[in-house]
Design a protein around this nucleic acid. Structure first.
Lengths: 146, 146
DNA sequence: CTTGACCCTGTAACGGTTACAGGGTTTAGG
DNA sequence: CCTAAACCCTGTAACCGTTACAGGGTCAAG
């Protein structure tokens, strides 16, 4: 008999909240675990590792869909893993674009901050800058992701 | 009689979709505009500038709540504008933290990408790295914002 | 007179997580 | 034994800002 864990214990060990674990199950990243007599979920060691995989992917900023693709590859060891490389490369590219965009943004903010110490709003350079019709970066995806 | 614009024209001029404009109105960033006989919204020049202000703020990554605070300052010119500086500074700090986090992340991704050209998933270093229980950055806010 | 381009309202979706409500079960302490 | 706390269950809604619908009305040109 291998040891099993209830969802709360898994949460403690993986740093992943019970809600998220149930969410991953609903989305199909985790197979539905066995249930005890009272309907409680019981997880084995492999599930713990799978959840760790997901969390690590999330901490890298991968979306759950990409993680699901990576898990599918992992579940079929004979598959060509070029797809994994593709996912990671694509994401790296995305992250690099995002860094560049945020740097442009930080520069614009730095030009504006601390320009009007102790003044009145009527003369506030920050507010004036926002009214100025020259959004330094008006392209899509230039602000924060939302 | 000053010229007025319908929502679609405003959208064209500001680059802000009609849905977003109505959304800003519902949230109170814009006052409800006058309505024509058919119930169509009619905007004046000041509204256009206010929407431009909002879009510029959004392009800087400010959230709508912060923008609302800045608009409130702008609406009361006698107020001390230290609050505006506070908002911009706080946001700049946030952006800088985010850049730093993304750079850590990009480094981790770069270590992983292109490690297993043409291999099988069983040996895929990307997948192995994700199973490894050493999430380089497990702190909150280290992944992408979501 | 129809087609298409507008406009209106209200609701739901996206992503991932969190927070409930409303119920049941176990466990530890008195 | 009794009770409170801690845990589990399901389902739903919120968060943020935007987009996309559905289902309806209005107006102009062809």
């Amino acid at each position: 008999m291998k040891p099993t864990y209830r969802i709360g214990q898994v949460a403690t060990r993986t740093g992943c909240s019970p809600e998220s674990i149930r969410h991953y199950e609903k989305l199909g990243l985790l197979v539905a675990p066995q249930r005890g007599e009272q309907g409680y979920r019981h997880y084995d060691q492999a599930s713990l590792e799978r959840i760790g995989f997901i969390r690590h992917g999330r901490s890298l900023g991968l979306d759950l869909h990409s993680i699901q693709e990576l898990l599918a590859l992992s579940d079929h060891p004979d598959t060509d893993c070029a797809a994994a490389d593709e996912i990671a490369s694509r994401h790296l590219e995305h992250v690099e674009e995002r860094i560049a965009a945020l740097q442009v943004l930080a520069n614009e903010l730095r030009q504006v901050v601390h320009q009007c110490r102790g003044g009145k709003a009527a003369n506030c350079k920050i507010i004036k800058a926002l009214y100025d019709h020259q959004p330094t970066c008006s392209m899509r995806g230039c602000g924060e992701e939302n």
